[in-house]
Design a protein around this nucleic acid. Structure first.
Lengths: 150, 150
DNA sequence: TTAGATGCAAATCTTTTGCAGTGCG
DNA sequence: CGCACTGCAAAAGATTTGCATCTAA
């Protein structure tokens, strides 16, 4: 797990991390990574596509899918587990957790003290090699919670 | 959160819980619920459909989608957060967590001691009303772990 | 009796694939 | 220069919708 790193630092070290992963550094990849590193919104491929079209009109949605999938497989992005059909990506790869709004599908990061090992050590007899874990909270974000009041 | 309840008991009390939720008890619903209550596999709608066709050949896949969605909205089923596009359902609604295999998408239940409140109380300043939480572990199930060895 | 449930087919949404042309290293 | 990458269009996969018909309560 990486240490906390600023968005700027992640963008700066991006080419180097691509090289290590055996990936070429293209403008599409730079734009997509920079967008995700600067975002708190955990965008889906469609949203990434929409937001980069201005800067890169030739971009295709299929390319966005291919790139985020590669980034995810090489550990540059996390894919957030959700109950919805659409994929959501996060450039933060340090240990943190997610709040998922059941009303609007907004996703927020949440940072909690490290879980004690007794919480994340699987019971003996569990035949599963865990590589990572995260807490997923479901509930209402501030906007949807406020709406529900009325 | 419900107490631990056997599959048989859940199936027995199913009609009563449907009534409370304002849902009619149909054969389709009984079959789908019974399958899920007896399963450890967290099946997707397509799998539910395939496994019930024998007993109920007239069943349609669209009906499976409608029923599991209703069950989920009325709290009879949990929908497991995953990174994949397909929906996965679980009739266990008591507090437990999930192991998701990154190789074959198998999902297993895991029961851990209750998380200490300091782990699940969101940091002050977090403007989000959490209604539930669960731990999601990603890694390799026993079958895929064994394959990876070779 | 009747509101709600089902089944079917078509529509929609999300993601993947194949391939010809392009560009990074 | 070569192999990986991109864009496009078409295909595939997952889910939803509209509507006529049926059925539990």
């Amino acid at each position: 797990m990486e240490h906390v790193v600023s968005a700027e630092e992640k963008i700066r070290s991006f080419p180097e991390r691509c090289h290590k992963a055996g990936l070429k550094v293209t403008q599409q990849r730079r734009e997509i990574y920079a967008l995700l590193a600067a975002s708190l919104a955990h965008p889906c491929p469609e949203e990434i596509y929409e937001q980069i079209r201005d800067a890169l009109p030739s971009l295709s949605l299929a390319t966005v899918y291919k790139i985020v999938d590669q980034f995810h497989r090489h550990g540059l992005l996390r894919k957030v587990p959700t109950r919805s059909q659409v994929a959501r990506y996060d450039a933060r790869t340090d240990e943190h957790h997610h709040l998922v709004c059941t009303a609007c599908d907004r996703i927020e990061d949440v940072f909690l003290p490290p879980l004690p090992p007794r919480m994340t050590r699987l019971p003996s007899g569990t035949d599963f090699q865990a590589q990572s874990y995260e807490l997923v909270f479901h509930g209402l974000c501030s906007a949807c919670g406020a709406t529900a009041q009325t």
